[in-house]
Design a protein around this nucleic acid. Structure first.
Lengths: 182, 182
DNA sequence: ACCTGAACACCGTTCAAGT
DNA sequence: ACCTGAACACCGTTCAAGT
């Protein structure tokens, strides 16, 4: 049966989870799919485009809903994004790369801006969303890299609660962006 | 004259500024220095170590001083770090990589934690500093990547003020971390 | 001590030619 | 339409052997 774009993304996700981001190469992917490397380029423009598609897939489970107040909606969205990233090995690196090149494609990340737009001027909503995104991706990338290094024994597996540390940053940012209207 | 570690770092910085991060390879570096690739490995353990040394050099001009209140000291430090990064093409990518692997080596980044420790509990200071660092590196990396793409014509050169956007994020974070004690 | 030469095991991408 | 075969121009790293 003919190779398909979806099949390629599936295989990429599999390599990512089994061997990590460093091992995700076009040639490795071709090997896994039992085709020649060149075959991939019929379905995908280049590696960059593949990574962007991969990022979309990784974030697909996240649904930002604007229920309740912006504050708790953003808080929930941040946690959902983190969860989606942690579900796939190396995901934060993939999404960080994609985010810089094609931010408009990553809907959940745009969603943050929409949520903030409910309480801020358009410009502040945009800036605030980017601040959040940089923090989220940076924090989770660090978490995942540390997990990677700890698994290989290059780093002591930190016994601290990453989830708590993550939320501390989100809450600090939210406190600064959306001061209590009381 | 014999090759030296400092010489290698100098050449790396030169390649970075002239051709960008993507072109900074061990082989390219060797070519520039007119030695065989293997020669580099007498002076440097591997590429990772070279990048870490490069990151230290890039951030060397930054001096965090704890004068005045923590708030304005951190604000100034963030701006200084951004300036140091913007002075070298691709610097944010280099420092981001180094930061994940050996955060203790990047003194200016540790300095942020020290500054915050003046007003927060040790744990909150650590978390707060990491939040700031993730934001700073993410924001500047995006700025530099966009400049890179715009220079190549792949992206319209955004006419907005990146400095203002950067400060908005820093101030939001600081407002959340260090609420006005008034 | 410091470097060369040569190798090993890889990359991303292109493209004529086949089916 | 979809893929192979083969090439091009690269990587990071190691290591015997030379000086």
């Amino acid at each position: 049966m003919a190779l398909s774009r979806e099949q390629i993304i599936d295989a990429a996700l599999l390599i990512l989870n089994s061997y990590g981001f460093a091992d995700l190469s076009m040639r490795r992917l071709a090997r896994e799919l039992e085709v020649q490397p060149g075959a991939l380029y019929w379905h995908v423009k280049n590696k960059q485009e593949l990574l962007t598609a991969l990022a979309e897939r990784i974030l697909a489970p996240v649904a930002v809903d604007s229920g309740a107040d912006p504050r708790s909606a953003v808080r929930q969205a941040a946690q959902d994004i983190r969860a989606a990233l942690l579900a796939v090995r190396g995901a934060a690196d993939v999404v960080s790369l994609a985010q810089v090149l094609r931010p408009e494609l990553l809907l959940p990340l745009c969603g943050l801006e929409t949520l903030l737009a409910g309480a801020l001027t358009p410009q502040k909503a945009r800036w605030g969303a980017r601040t959040l995104i940089h923090y989220i991706l940076g924090a989770v990338a660090e978490e995942q890299t540390h997990a990677e290094l700890a698994a290989v024994g290059l780093l002591p597996s930190g016994g601290q609660d990453d989830g708590e540390a993550f939320l501390f940053g989100v809450d600090a940012l939210l406190a600064g962006l959306l001061p209590e209207t009381r």
